[in-house]
Amino acid sequence: MAEDPNLVSTWLSAMVSSAEELATSTLGLDGITVLDSGLPSDRSFPGSYVALVGDDYNFEYGVAGSWEACGTLGRALLFMEPDEELTDDDMADAINEVINIVAGGVKRRMTEVDPGLKLGLPAFFNGTLHPTSHQEAAGSKIEIAGAEVYLLAFRHKV
């Protein structure tokens, strides 16, 4: 790993790479497009979050966007047509699975940095995590399967 693992941006970079892998494998797409960097100013996004906790590094990872964007991404994961009805439960389940896969890819990419990394169970909620002075955060806005969503990484300083 050439990048500094002490930088939250390094872990966000692994997350973007993992999202690219999800797009090109399971979703069968050409890839993702990184649209912007930084955290969203809107703090009322729905999204899914999961903990990735290790011996030296502790993170919350999230994928969040508008309800419409989450629906678009959920339908893509479930191979549904754009106009097919998607219940809130199924959308939450699908977005949970997106962050589960993406964070699993981060774990795989960063396991040499922290072999003790353990992946939690994802949770879907409306609103974004708010980093405190004890946390660092980074985000990237991406387009994946026609959905514009944020990839978010929150690091708990130890």
């Binding site: 994961l77 479930l78 191979f79 199924d90 699975e97 169970l121």
Partner: peptide
């Protein structure tokens, strides 16, 4: 799998 979505995806694959 605890995810209904993932069970469906695995089945499809």
């Amino acid at each position: 799998d605890d995810s209904k979505a993932m069970r469906m995806i695995v089945l499809r694959h």
